[in-house]
């Protein structure tokens, strides 16, 4: 298995760019909140988010200052295959998109297959493919039955 050793984070420049981006996003979110509260009709619902938004902006500014002065060395995405991570999350989201039209089991089968492929590092042969798909189907069917029939969850 080829191990990537390239550090994906921001170490190169000596600055912790990731932290800066996250903190800036938090500040942005705080500002959006401060704008959003102007649309509320009841002052009772304004107070809390306003306070929290200011607190968040304040903390994030401090985070930026701190990371500027003392950039952290151990942040970053670390080693690992990006395609596997993306495949896992993407298939789960696709499953949600398909679920209302395609039904629950077909949709989650996509997510299940995505997870199987993403998590398999040893490579595939005919036997493992059959074994894993079969156990996957069994697990899904089992849980589906538990939720749908024993617990009465109206799965689409």
């Amino acid at each position: 298995m080829p191990r990537q050793t390239i550090e994906t984070s921001s170490r190169s420049g000596g600055k912790d760019v990731g932290t800066l981006i996250v903190a800036s996003l938090f500040i942005g979110l705080g500002l959006i909140t401060l704008h959003d509260v102007t649309t509320y009709s009841d002052t009772d619902s304004v107070v809390f988010p306003t306070f929290v938004a200011y607190a968040m902006i304040f903390c994030s500014v401090l985070v930026i200052i701190a990371s500027w002065l003392r950039p952290s060395r151990d942040n970053g995405f670390g080693n690992g295959d990006w395609w596997r991570r993306l495949l896992l999350v993407a298939t789960m989201l696709v499953a949600c998109a398909i679920m209302p039209v395609g039904g629950f089991l077909p949709a989650t089968a996509i997510a299940f297959a995505g997870g199987l492929i993403a998590a398999r590092h040893e490579g595939w042969d005919a036997r493992s493919a059959v074994v894993f798909s079969a156990s996957g189907i069994a697990i899904m069917a089992g849980f589906y039955a538990l939720f749908r029939f024993a617990l009465g969850v109206p799965l689409p």
Binding site: T108, F112, L116, A119, R120, H121, E122, S135, I139, V153
Partner: peptide, 19 residues
């Protein structure tokens, strides 16, 4: 095996959250 653990847990998160 991890190969089956990951999709099973992923499936559980979907069905559990939905429920």
């Amino acid at each position: 095996p991890k190969t089956i653990l990951v999709p099973s847990v992923g499936f559980m998160t979907i069905i559990g959250t939905f429920a």
